[in-house]
Design a protein around this nucleic acid. Structure first.
Length: 351
DNA sequence: TTCTATGATTTGAT
DNA sequence: ATCAAATCATAGAA
C-alpha cells in the first residue's frame, strides 16, 4: 500500500528525465554540469554506489540521510517507474508451476516404503508381512526382518533429520530475505507480489535440494530392499517328510493335480509350510512334470508303490487284527508285489 | 568350480 | 483369484 502511494506521487515531475538518463551513470555524469537537480541526483547515486565500500554503521547513517533527502521521493518514483516496466516484462515469464511428477514419484515411494509415513506400522509392517508371507522359518525371518527394520529406521531417521534441517534452513533464509526485502522496500519499490515471488523462488531452490535428499534416500532404501529381498528369497528345501507328503498327493492325483483350498490347507499343516508354499510347490511340480514326464517316471512309480504299500499296510493291519495267529502272512504277498513293482520300474527305467 | 534341483517371483492370460 | 510359463537365485551334488 505504502509503496503504491509513493509510486503514484513521484511519477509526474521527473518521469521523462528519469526514463532517459537515471539508469546510466555515464549520462548522469555528463549532465552534472547542466544544473542543480541533476547534480543532486548524481550525488545521490554516487552515494548509493559508495555505500557498499563503507562500514555498516556508516552505511546505515548514510542510508538514513538518503532516506531523509529532499530528492528521495523523486528518485524513488523514478525507480518505481523503471521497475514497473521491467517487472511487467518478467511477470509473464513464469507463473504457477505444476507439481513435479518426479518429486511426486519419490514421495510416493518413500511413503510406500514407510520412510516418510507415520512412525510405526505402514510400510515397514507391510514389508514384514511380505517377509513373513514369503516363507522361511519364523525365527529366520524375524531376525532378518528386525535387521531390515533397524536399517530402515536408520535411513528414516537420517532422512527426517536432514529434511528438518533443510526446512529450518529454508524458513530461516526465507525470513531473512523477507526482512531484507521489507527493509529495502523503504528505499526501493518492492510489491508484496514480488516478495511472494522471491519466496517461491527460494522454495523452489530448496525443494530441489530436498529432491536430491529424497532421491538418495530412495536409492538407499532400494539397495537395502534388494539386499533383504534376496535374503527373503534365500531358499530352504522342504524337509524330506514334507516333500514326501506333497509328492504322494501329487502322484495319487496325477489326473487332476489341483488340490482344493482345503486340501492345500491340510497339506500345509501336514508339511509345516504355508498354503502359498503348497501352491508354489504344486505350480512348480505340474509344470516340471509336464515338461519332462520321462524324468519323473521313476518318482511316479515310486510313489505309486508307496501308496500301494500304505493301502496294503492298512488292509494288512485289518487282516492282522482278524487273524493274529499268522502274523505278517498277508505281508508276504505284499512284499512280493512290491518287489515285482520295483523290477518293473527298473526295467522301464533301463529302456 | 560347474551343473542340476528346487523354492520363489514375475508376467500375462483366463 | 488362479494358473502356466518363464525366470531368478540359491542349495546341494558332482
Amino acid at each position: 500500500m505504502d509503496d503504491q502511494t509513493r509510486m503514484m506521487t513521484g511519477l509526474t515531475g521527473l518521469g521523462g528525465l528519469a526514463q532517459a538518463d537515471v539508469g546510466d551513470p555515464d549520462s548522469v555524469r555528463k549532465q552534472q554540469s547542466l544544473g542543480q537537480p541533476q547534480q543532486d541526483i548524481g550525488d545521490i547515486l554516487q552515494q548509493i554506489m559508495a555505500i557498499t565500500d563503507e562500514s555498516l554503521d556508516e552505511a546505515q547513517a548514510r542510508k538514513h540521510a538518503l532516506n531523509c533527502h529532499r530528492m528521495k521521493p523523486a528518485l524513488f518514483s523514478v525507480l518505481c517507474e523503471i521497475k514497473e516496466k521491467t517487472v511487467l516484462s518478467i511477470r509473464g515469464v513464469q507463473e504457477e508451476d505444476p507439481p513435479d511428477p518426479q518429486i511426486m514419484r519419490l514421495d510416493n515411494m518413500l511413503l510406500a516404503e514407510g520412510v516418510s509415513g507415520p512412525e510405526k506400522g505402514g510400510g515397514s509392517a507391510a514389508a514384514a508381512a511380505a517377509a513373513a508371507a514369503a516363507g522361511g522359518s519364523p525365527t529366520d525371518s524375524s531376525i532378518e526382518h528386525s535387521d531390515y527394520r533397524a536399517k530402515l529406521a536408520q535411513i528414516r531417521q537420517i532422512y527426517h533429520s536432514e529434511l528438518e534441517k533443510y526446512e529450518q534452513a529454508c524458513s530461516e533464509f526465507t525470513n531473512h530475505v523477507m526482512n531484507l526485502l521489507r527493509e529495502q522496500s523503504r528505499t526501493r519499490p518492492i510489491s508484496p507480489k514480488e516478495i511472494e515471488r522471491m519466496v517461491a523462488i527460494i522454495h523452489r531452490k530448496f525443494s530441489s535440494i530436498q529432491m536430491q535428499l529424497k532421491q538418495s534416500t530412495c536409492e538407499a532404501v532400494m539397495i537395502l530392499r534388494s539386499r533383504f529381498l534376496d535374503a527373503r528369497r534365500k531358499r530352504r528345501n522342504f524337509n524330506k517328510q514334507a516333500t514326501e507328503v506333497l509328492n504322494e498327493y501329487f502322484y495319487s492325483h496325477l489326473s487332476n493335480p489341483y488340490p482344493s483350498e482345503e486340501a492345500k490347507e491340510e497339506l500345509a499343516k501336514k508339511c509345516g509350510i504355508t498354503v502359498s508354499q503348497v501352491s508354489n510347490w504344486f505350480g512348480n511340480k505340474r509344470i516340471r512334470y509336464k515338461k519332462n514326464i520321462g524324468k519323473f517316471q521313476e518318482e511316479a512309480n515310486l510313489y505309486a508303490v508307496k501308496t500301494a504299500v500304505d493301502a496294503a499296510n492298512v488292509s494288512a493291519q485289518a487282516s492282522q487284527a482278524n487273524s493274529p495267529a499268522t502274523p505278517n502272512s498277508g505281508n508276504k504277498y505284499l512284499m512280493l508285489n512290491i518287489y515285482r513293482n520295483f523290477r518293473l520300474i527298473q526295467c522301464s527305467h533301463d529302456m
